[in-house]
């Protein structure tokens, strides 16, 4: 009996977490007025007209371009800066390394909401408001990325670097050809987590821009909320389009993401 009950409970939990995403799909592809039917319609009707309207009659591709541009440059920069700093912390003798280590750790402790005002002032004085640079630069370094790479590099046998030193291979080639290829899981993790956090960014672009030309999708959705006040099919179609990349990436990499977040190896086994 209790085993049955537990299974039902598990299914209910899964349904609770997944139904809003499903519901977005139902409303977005339902027939006209289906959103307002009582009792609600539970099955999608696969009408993609509303989505077509969003794609063709709005600046969707402009927003998509912004999102892709910001996300891809951010990911690349985070990878480069984290690999460099992680390598320095793991392998290079730098005076004051402990202080630097704690300084990086400290960034994680700073409450973001409390910093927005002075950050805005700094961005203003650096002339970075309303620019792609302003949306990207502050996120080009990542403490967790640095620590992850540091951890991976420290696990490499010391003799790898020593062999390359004896063979007259410079540090840069060693990092590129040996250290990074051997830290591939870290590259994947940092790429995924940076992708998710950058793609989902909302408050920063909301504050740092006042032109819609630079808006990433997530911010642009608020404009759709204004335009399509009661047009739920178009509105949910837009949010479905914004969700899709995340969901697709998640479907293919969920084990890796869950393992990366849990920080253990438990995700890799099953």
């Amino acid at each position: 009996m209790s085993k049955y009950l537990l299974t039902v409970l598990r299914i209910l939990i899964a349904v609770f977490f997944i139904i809003p995403v499903y519901w977005t799909f139902v409303i977005a592809t339902g027939s006209r007025g289906a959103a307002y039917s009582l009792p609600p319609v539970f099955l999608p009707a696969f009408h993609f007209h509303a989505m077509w309207v969003v794609l063709t009659q709005t600046r969707w591709f402009r927003y998509l371009f912004n999102s892709v541009l910001i996300t891809s440059i951010t990911i690349l920069s985070v990878l480069v800066s984290s690999i460099a700093a992680g390598y320095a912390l793991a392998e290079v003798r730098v005076p004051g390394k402990n202080l630097i280590f704690y300084l990086m750790l400290g960034v994680m402790m700073l409450p973001g909401q409390a910093l927005l005002i002075p950050q805005y002032v700094v961005m203003f004085h650096l002339h970075l408001l309303n620019s792609y640079a302003g949306l990207i630069l502050p996120f080009t370094a990542s403490t967790s990325g640095i620590f992850l790479f540091r951890q991976y590099f420290m696990k490499l046998p010391k003799s790898y670097r020593e062999v390359s030193r004896v063979e007259n291979v410079n540090t840069w080639t060693y990092i590129r050809r040996v250290a990074v290829p051997l830290a591939k899981p870290a590259v994947a993790t940092v790429t995924l987590l940076t992708f998710i956090s950058t793609w989902n960014q909302f408050q920063w672009p909301l504050i740092m821009t006042d032109t819609t030309n630079l808006d990433p999708i997530e911010l642009a959705l608020t404009h759709y909320m204004q335009t399509y006040q009661a047009n739920w099919r178009e509105l949910t179609s837009a949010s479905l389009l914004a969700l899709l990349p995340i969901i697709i990436v998640f479907l293919f990499t969920q084990k890796h993401i869950v393992a990366a977040v849990a920080g253990g190896e438990q995700g890799g086994k099953d």
Partner: peptide, 14 residues
């Protein structure tokens, strides 16, 4: 876990 990775505005709409 899925909801945690979804963008907030997109899911707030629904």
């Amino acid at each position: 876990f899925l909801p945690h990775v979804t963008p907030i505005v997109a899911t707030s709409i629904i």
